[in-house]
Nucleic acid binder design. Sequence first.
DNA 1: AGAGTGATCATG
DNA 2: ATGATCACTCTC
Length: 203
Amino acid sequence: MDDKRLDADFYRRDPMVVAQALLGCRLVRVIDGQSLIGRIVETEAYLGIADKAAHTCGGRRTARNQSMWEAGGLAYVYFTYGMHHCLNVVTQQPEEPTAVLIRAMEPIAGVERMRDHRSGKIARDRLRATDLGSGPAKLCQALAIDRELDGEDLTTSDQLWIEADDLPGKRISRGPRIGVGYAEEWALKPLRYWIRDHRHVSR
DNA sequence: AGAGTGATCATG
DNA sequence: ATGATCACTCTC
């Protein structure tokens, strides 16, 4: 039953490769014995020390970003803007601090529980299907992902992992990453990937 | 287009 | 200690 779980070899590759390979895969979050599942439809690659948009730019190593310095296959969850969490998967080898940001998902299972988690920000009856996973902080809220899951090993965890899957006939688009305007020449590099024309992509 | 929000980090 | 920043979201 676990044969589709992505293993360490999947994650220990170039983040640009992993970012594209993750499109269509299933993100699984188990909470209180219930499985919440979303299909990944949008990602961004962060290329490490040289990447001026990455948290590890210039070799920065802090308490927050420590997970990015570990081996590929861990979760890197960070907190920002005083209220939002975002989920990354760590890629490559230890001391190669690269990662892929999960930017959007299509809710697949446990949708009512996701709505519960998202209610409060938006009144429950105003929540549309695309309000559950069409952004990195929205999907973390829907899946109840916070810093407690930072450093979680996605290859062995019973709370959070990713399974191989595909969307037959999907087309991949790419473009500049969102929200990294400060990153100078790195701001415009096409390191954001998404499934073309998919409803649940952000923006 | 602007506000909200507080952990995080570089500075000193 | 302090101040600036922020891989975002919501509402206007």
